[in-house]
Computed example of a mutant assay.
Amino acid sequence: MLVCLLGSSPLLAQQYEDYFQVKAVPDTTSIRLGEQVNISVTAKVMLYALKGASLKVVFPNLPDSLNHLEVVSRTPLDTAGSNSQQKLWKQTITLTSFDSGRWELPPMKFEVFSVTDGSYDSVFTEPIIIDVTTVAVDTSKAFKPIKPLRRVAWNLLDYWPWLLGILLLVTGVVLYFVYWRKRKPAPKPPPAQPLRSPYETAMDELAQLGKDKPWNTDVKLYYTQLTDILRQYFEQQFHIAALEQTSAELLQNIKPVTVLNQQRDKLQSILTLADLAKFAKLQPSPQEHEDCLQKAIAVVEWTKPAAAPAPEPDSTNQKK
């Protein structure tokens, strides 16, 4: 996945084709079984049309196999064609197939996100049709007769794995019955520790993060750990698939959770700064590092579950 950030203001209201173009071109559309076809995938962003824009561009991530086509390899993203007027990414995806027929590589989806307001849209390439043919057979020639079976002389060494396995099995059975009386009773397992709540786990991890201060050596690692702690807490506490969602999707899906949606501004501020630091190589100030950590602690504190009321004593067992 590739993420690119540009400028500082949203521009999704414009038509994407004005400034964002994607293309997938195969070097051939007809192969034989097992042969390969190279798909040249390009994405072009016109920088002159994006002054002041703040966008993320996400490249498609094809599965290893789809519709009788298998992905053999993917080259790293190449930005050699970029200049002051445009940003250009290139990637070559190599496919093959072992099933004859006409197969379609479905349109590949590129996603464009607005960092400012969290809105997003998708742009697709054209589908690609690939014909896979078998090796031609000359049916004009007569069939050749089937050759008779050839018998191989029996050799004891051919069965040595089986003999060794039987020997080991017999040895294991004998040793078990000889020494089973000498076995010491297995120690009792230690009592199970009470499970920690998602709130306690998240607070401990945030406190440890504040002690370690990883932003002094690796800013990207710090924001990755910080957002992962929050996402795991949301999954365990509110059953939201936060680890599988983008920042924009996560902010959209917390709306039904009232107590979590009340902290939406803090959460959006954390996620936005984290995305900029992880994907746009932004270097926030030390004060911003500390501020993000304190906001994360505030979000967890605000959304922690209420303590269960203590059970009331049974009045029937009290002496009058």
Rank of each mutant, 00 (worst) to 15 (best):
L2K: 05
L5G: 10
S9A: 12
P10K: 10
Q14C: 06
E17W: 06
P26K: 04
D27F: 03
T28E: 13
T29E: 14
T29R: 04
R32V: 00
L33T: 10
G34R: 02
A43K: 00
A43M: 09
V45W: 07
M46H: 13
Y48A: 10
Y48I: 00
L55T: 01
V58P: 03
P60Y: 09
D64V: 00
L66Q: 15
L66W: 10
H68G: 08
D78E: 03
D78C: 08
A80W: 11
G81A: 14
S82K: 03
N83L: 03
N83V: 02
S84R: 07
K90V: 01
L95K: 04
F98T: 06
R102C: 08
P107S: 06
M108F: 06
F110T: 02
S114Y: 10
G118P: 00
G118Q: 07
S119D: 05
Y120I: 01
D121T: 14
V123F: 11
P127D: 08
D131K: 15
A136R: 14
D138G: 04
T139C: 09
F143V: 09
F143D: 06
K147M: 09
L149Q: 11
W154F: 13
D158P: 06
P161R: 02
P161S: 04
L163E: 04
L164E: 00
T171M: 14
V173H: 06
Y176K: 10
V178S: 06
W180Q: 13
R183H: 05
K184E: 06
K184R: 13
P185D: 06
K188H: 07
P189R: 07
P189Q: 14
A192F: 08
Q193A: 15
Q193G: 00
S197P: 00
T201M: 11
D204E: 12
Q208A: 08
Q208W: 12
Q208S: 12
D212I: 04
K213V: 01
N216Q: 14
T217H: 09
L221S: 12
L221K: 13
Y222Q: 02
Q225Y: 10
T227K: 04
I229F: 02
Q232M: 08
Q232I: 07
Q236S: 08
F238A: 09
L243M: 15
L250H: 05
Q252T: 06
N253W: 03
P256Q: 03
V257I: 11
V257Y: 15
T258M: 10
V259I: 10
L260Y: 02
D265A: 03
D265Y: 01
K266S: 01
Q268A: 15
S269Y: 03
T272S: 13
L273Y: 05
L273N: 09
A274G: 03
F279R: 05
Q283K: 14
Q287A: 15
E288A: 13
H289A: 07
D291F: 00
A296F: 02
V300Q: 00
V300D: 01
P305V: 00
A306I: 01
A307E: 11
A307C: 06
A307L: 11
E312T: 09
E312S: 14
S315A: 14
K319C: 05
